[in-house]
Design a binder for these strands. Structure first.
Length: 652
RNA sequence: GCUGCUGUAGCUCAGUGGUAGAGCACUCCCUUGGUAAGGGAGAGGUCGACAGUUCAAUCCUGUCCAGCAGCACCA
């Protein structure tokens, strides 16, 4: 603490401190340290807060000066300044365009504009060119604090209605920070760079244009959003663009075609036509899940697809989710009126029907009821995406009927189950999101306390950590969401565990407890994969089509090099098939180069090439996917090796 | 659902106001070749659907359907 009120003490990362006059700017501090740092400086960290070089410092603090060499602050400022530079460029080219907001996002930024004409790809090129001109101007960035009303008047005058709306939403007595890049002005919290020349002119690229609602509200006007990506230099940008190409190569829609897994067509939007190869993945995964669930103490059931509306009325779906349901009207010849049914969008009401048949005892609980439940939901057309977001899908669904005091143990048991499944499928890491009571909710505080405590204790018991997602629980109970990370760092929410005291109530599920009276069970909704369709899409993209042997639809191709080897090829295939290996012969009249290329592109994990040498010594030449070399192995050994390799993880 | 873009052979894509083309894939023939495309020939399309303009529409206009990107949605 400085004794003199007009002096402040700033402590640097090396522990040294210097005194400055209160109100000194970080720019002045940087210049005071060295002339070159003054030039190189882009911003500061003041007590850990990202601080604009122009902002005055009024009190003692820890300070560190950032330069373009500092990764996180540099990227944030570059992207943020580029948002402003892009908006300035757009208004320089089309002065009548209205600006709105333009935040920094992962890898870059976007800015939303209101313009009658759509931006074209050619426009993006023109904007990019103009942005480079602006960067070369090296215009200083300037900032001032304004009264709210002055800002409103200013934006009224300059014809920026969206800015007026933004500022009007701010309390009247609050001061606003205004920024100028050269003459171009925007409302902005900051911080920003010292001048536009600090942005690397070859480190950014405008990517695409898309519609976006004003303030994210679908009742508001649609704006045009331009996305850009930016990095500290050209090499980082190139690396990012290469990564995007890699991600595009993994696209399950592309691989699904190339590997002949499935197709979709106009007549059945959002539904999958599974081809033999894709269906092999599906059934292999389903067989695996079925075995895991049996071992895990579940019973498996199956329930109807087409269910009368009365059940959906009781469950509450008819009132709340009708627009997402496929409605089926049946006009029976002698019926006085049509019966109205819906394709089931979820399995839970049907599972309660099974629970409700006959009296259940407390001895039956916990009752873990699983179904590979085929569901249909009328998803909005714009939401459909390959096999990842579809209208017809199958969940690995289960409902656990239990008492309140069993929730914790069942939750822990499920987390262990899910952990084992994900690990078998190649996903070692997952994150647990713990969604707690929302603002609008039913039930007593005591009940919420108990449910939340049970979930938290269960997570702790399994040794996992979790991320709190406050207020995001269902209106009747808390839930857990499980997010896995794929091979290129993308996060997918697949698993879920949701407590539900509501549906047993609505559908009047009861059991007889020790006291001889009827009691209400809890229902725990849970899924590991979510849907088979989506999860298989994730698997394809995670493995870039090169699925582990046990999931690969075509495990081994045995290819002849000369037609005199064909009989031996067929013998090898038969021997592999006898051991449960998915093997096929390729005795076509083609060169081995051609066959190797084709099956490599088809992502077949193992190619066994057979010429006369192999026939004579009863061996095979083994070529594995992705490897350039081959290995000659005796037939007897390779068959058992490949059979072992193709065994699902739970059977090893 | 909203905004924009797209829809031509199984796939990737050219092209034109006078009813269509390439490469790969496919079929047949030749070739028996040792680890990512051997050669030749052939077959294959109501140019997403329906209207309209026109002597004439795959091409221009409209409506619809589907796909793509983003937004919104995801019980």
């Amino acid at each position: 603490m400085s004794l003199d009120q007009s002096k402040i003490s700033l402590t640097f990362p090396d522990g040294n401190a210097r005194e400055y006059a209160a109100g000194v700017t970080a720019a002045e501090v940087a210049a005071d340290i060295s002339k070159s740092l003054g030039k190189k400086a882009i911003s500061a960290q003041l007590d850990g807060k990202h601080w604009d070089l122009q902002w005055p410092i009024e009190a003692d603090a820890q300070i560190a000066i950032n330069t373009l060499a500092d990764d996180a602050p540099a990227l944030e400022l570059i992207r943020h300044d580029l948002a402003h530079i892009m908006a300035r460029a757009v208004q320089a080219i089309w002065p009548d365009v209205k600006v709105t907001i333009g935040p920094v996002i992962k890898d870059g930024w976007y800015y939303d504009f209101d313009r009658a004409e759509p931006f074209t790809p050619e426009d993006l090129g023109a904007i990019e060119k103009k942005m480079k001109e602006i960067i070369n101007l090296r215009d200083p960035v300037r900032t001032e604090i304004w009264d709210r009303d002055r800002a409103i008047a200013h934006y009224r005058e300059s014809g920026e209605p969206y800015k007026v709306e933004l500022v009007e939403a701010i309390p009247a007595d609050q001061k606003l920070r205004m920024y100028w890049h050269g003459d171009w002005q925007d409302l902005c919290r900051g911080p920003h760079l010292q001048h536009t020349g600090q942005v690397p002119a070859d480190g950014f690229k405008l990517m695409n244009v898309a519609g976006a609602y004003w303030r994210g509200d679908s009742s508001k006007p649609m704006l045009q959003r331009i996305y850009g990506v930016a990095f500290r230099n050209r090499d980082d940008l190139k690396a990012h663009l290469t990564m995007l190409e890699e991600a595009a190569k993994r696209d399950h829609r592309k691989l699904g075609r190339e590997m002949n897994l499935f197709h979709m067509q106009e007549e059945a939007p959002g539904q999958v036509f599974w081809h033999p190869n894709g269906w092999t993945i599906y059934t292999t995964l389903q067989d695996y899940m079925r075995r895991k669930q049996r071992v895990g103490g579940y019973v498996e059931v199956n329930t109807p697809q087409v269910v009368n509306r009365t059940l959906w009325e009781k469950s509450g779906h008819w009132a709340n989710y009708q627009e997402h349901m496929f409605i089926v009207e049946v006009d029976e010849e002698h019926a006085r009126e049509k019966t109205v049914n819906a394709l089931k969008p979820m399995n839970c009401p049907c599972h309660v029907q099974i629970f409700n048949v006959g009296l259940k005892s407390y001895r039956d609980l916990p009752l873990r009821m699983a179904e590979f439940g085929s569901c249909n939901r009328y998803e909005p057309s714009g939401a459909l995406h390959g096999i990842m977001r579809v209208r017809g899908f199958t969940q690995d669904d289960a409902h656990i009927f239990c008492r309140e005091d069993q929730i914790e143990a069942e939750c822990a048991r499920f987390i262990d189950f899910l952990s084992s499944v994900y690990s078998d499928l190649g996903f070692e890491n997952f994150e647990i999101m713990f969604a707690t009571r929302p603002e609008k909710r039913v039930g007593t505080e005591e009940s919420w306390n108990k449910m939340e405590a049970a979930l938290e204790a269960a997570i702790k018991k399994t040794g996992h950590s979790y991320t709190l997602d406050p207020g995001e629980g269902a209106f009747y109970a808390p839930k857990l969401d499980f997010k896995l990370t794929d091979a290129i760092g993308r996060v997918w929410q697949c698993g879920t565990f949701q407590v539900d005291p509501n549906l047993p109530e609505r559908l009047d599920a009861t059991y007889i407890a020790e006291d001889g009276a009827k009691h209400r069970p809890y229902m725990l909704h849970r899924a590991c994969l979510g849907s088979f369709e989506r999860f298989i899409g994730i698997l394809i993209e995670n493995w870039a089509g090169k699925l582990p042997m046990w999931l690969a639809p075509r495990q081994v191709v045995v290819a002849s090099i000369v037609s005199d080897a064909d009989n031996y090829v067929r013998e090898v295939v038969a021997a592999l098939q006898a051991q449960g290996v998915r093997a096929e012969a390729d005795t076509r009249n083609e060169k081995i180069n051609y066959k190797v290329r084709e099956h490599s592109l088809g992502k077949v994990p193992v190619i066994l090439a057979i010429g006369m040498k192999e026939v004579e010594e009863r061996s095979v030449s083994v070529r594995r996917l992705g490897e350039k070399t081959t290995q000659t192995m005796p037939l007897d050994g390779i068959i058992s090796d490949l059979a072992a390799e193709g065994t699902p993880p739970d059977l090893r």
